[in-house]
């Protein structure tokens, strides 16, 4: 792996670092909003992976200008446009859930919510209190 090779992959390695930071935030943090931010980072870095695979050195944006030019690959761009929508949809839904959880449990920390659930379960096997 001489330097030129390693340098070529360096781009992907940093994207992987970003992905893992996002995943780490989701897996390790208990705060529900922080988890969603982590999820956002994880997904955005996946978009970067897709786009950086579509880039051609010396290519320009895939917009025809009549003059023959080298274009970057348009397909990853299309895929990522859809993926961004999926990302924002999941974030919106997650945040709505966080608001409802705050109303129901008056907390957005996972550990506190689990404690409240266990308390409700041991106290009596009736379904949890009304929200």
């Amino acid at each position: 792996m001489e330097f030129k090779d390693a340098f070529g992959l360096f781009n992907y390695w940093i994207v992987i670092v970003l992905m893992m930071t996002g995943l780490y935030i989701v897996v390790s943090r208990g705060n529900l909003v922080k988890k969603i931010v982590g999820l956002n980072i994880f997904q955005t870095s996946v978009f970067l992976l897709y786009i950086s695979m579509g880039k051609v050195t010396g290519g320009t944006a895939p917009i025809l200008t009549g003059k023959p030019e080298v274009f970057s690959n348009p397909l990853p761009h299309v895929l990522i446009l859809t993926a961004i929508v999926v990302g924002i949809a999941t974030t919106a839904l997650g945040l709505a859930l966080v608001v409802r959880i705050k109303n129901a449990y008056n907390s957005i920390e996972e550990d506190e919510i689990q404690k409240l659930d266990l308390a409700a379960e041991n106290e009596v096997d009736e379904p949890g209190a009304r929200p």
Binding site: L23, V26, L32, K35, L39, F42, Q43, V46, V86, T90, L93, G94, L97, V98, R100, I101, A104, Y105, I113, Q114, D117, A120, P127, G128, A129, R130, P131
Partner: peptide, 19 residues
Amino acid sequence: RRALSAAYTYLVMGTIGAT
């Protein structure tokens, strides 16, 4: 009310799976 925390956990794990 536990349906909410269940849905949230499902969302997080489901999105990680989809990603």
